[in-house]
């Protein structure tokens, strides 16, 4: 690609950002929560993440070979997609279902639309929705984390996600992730740390996560639901910080990002509060992904000094 852009005269400073670098940053930011999930849920979680990552990379590798395209697995985006998908699954999900999810994410959602940069929705999250719709039973069996810090004898008690029922979790348990849920979504603390790292590295802007989480918080306060459960009990942190900030599928302007975040928050709240599903983060992000081109068109920035934006 850079071959095309060699028309240059002045000395230019080359920015060190690359797709690979950004993907690497996001993976680093996700790692604490992923490792914590592996500690909480044990060996099955480790294998789960390995299965999703390996399948995702292999799918992209095979697709590029079969269609005789340039090999793109080096940009780490497939690794990130696999990791994100794995962190969004319960540790009790059968491995073959997780593998199907990775194939759907890479082949159907990403490559069929033209590869990285052309997908209209976040691959990992869309794959999770496909799995959730297809295998509702297997996908929603969660277990309590192994409580090795207390009794030590208990192993894998099947429970629902905290959002699905009245629960007695304390704020501390919810915040640090000692509750049931998907592998990577339990520890709000580590996810926020990862998000702060990304913001410090200027990989993501804080607008979408803040607007998303803020909207859910305000709506929950108004509706009088349990705030700590609404914020830390489900996939909100993982979704808001890592999925709703995907470059390709979110608006480019600041105002657009704000609209996107608020929209995600509202849809999440509506699904949780009025809908039959316990969790609505992924559906909210997918719906707003679809609206992204329209948000972009509505919030076009005006060139400096221009009277009116030319209509395309």
């Amino acid at each position: 690609m850079s071959k095309l852009l060699k028309v240059t005269s002045s000395p230019h400073i080359r920015h060190v950002d690359s797709t690979r670098g950004i993907m690497f940053d996001v993976i680093v930011a996700l790692l604490p929560a992923a490792i914590w999930g592996c500690i909480l849920f044990g060996l099955r979680a480790v294998i789960m993440l390995a299965v999703t990552i390996v399948t995702a990379v292999a799918s992209e590798f095979v697709w590029n070979i079969v269609l005789k395209k340039e090999q793109t697995i080096g940009d780490l985006s497939a690794v990130l997609t696999g990791l994100l998908l794995g962190m969004n699954l319960s540790s009790q999900t059968p491995f073959w279902i997780a593998a199907i999810g990775s194939v759907v994410a890479i082949i159907v959602v990403k490559q069929m639309f033209g590869g990285l940069g052309f997908n209209f929705a976040n691959p990992a999250m869309t794959a999770r929705i496909v799995l959730l719709v297809s295998f509702a039973g297997q996908m929603s069996s969660y277990v309590s984390p192994i409580e090795w810090w207390s009794s030590g004898a208990v192993d894998a008690i099947a429970t629902a996600t905290p959002l699905a029922k009245e629960s007695s979790y304390t704020l501390r348990e919810l915040f640090f992730g000692m509750h049931s849920g998907a592998i990577g979504e339990t520890s709000a603390f580590l996810l926020i740390i990862g998000g702060l790292y990304l913001m410090l590295r200027r990989v993501i802007k804080p607008i979408i996560p803040v607007a998303f989480i803020g909207t859910v918080a305000i709506a929950s306060l108004i509706a009088g639901t349990d705030l700590k459960l609404a914020l830390f009990g489900g996939g909100l942190m993982l979704g808001a910080i890592f999925m709703a900030t995907d470059y390709v599928t979110t608006p480019t302007t600041n105002l657009g990002k704000l609209i996107f975040g608020v929209g995600c928050g509202l849809i999440t709240f509506v699904i949780r509060y009025f809908g039959a599903l316990p969790e609505g983060v992924s559906y909210a992000i997918l719906l707003m992904n679809i609206l992204t081109p329209h948000i972009n068109r509505l919030t076009l920035s005006k060139p400096f000094g221009a009277e009116e934006v030319a209509k395309s």
């Binding site: 199907i100 159907v108 496909v130 719709v133 297809s134 295998f135 509702a136 297997q138």
Partner: peptide, 15 residues
Amino acid sequence: IDPMIIFLLPPGGFF
């Protein structure tokens, strides 16, 4: 093999 219910739903039809 557990069937993928999504193929019976509208998205599967479009796919």
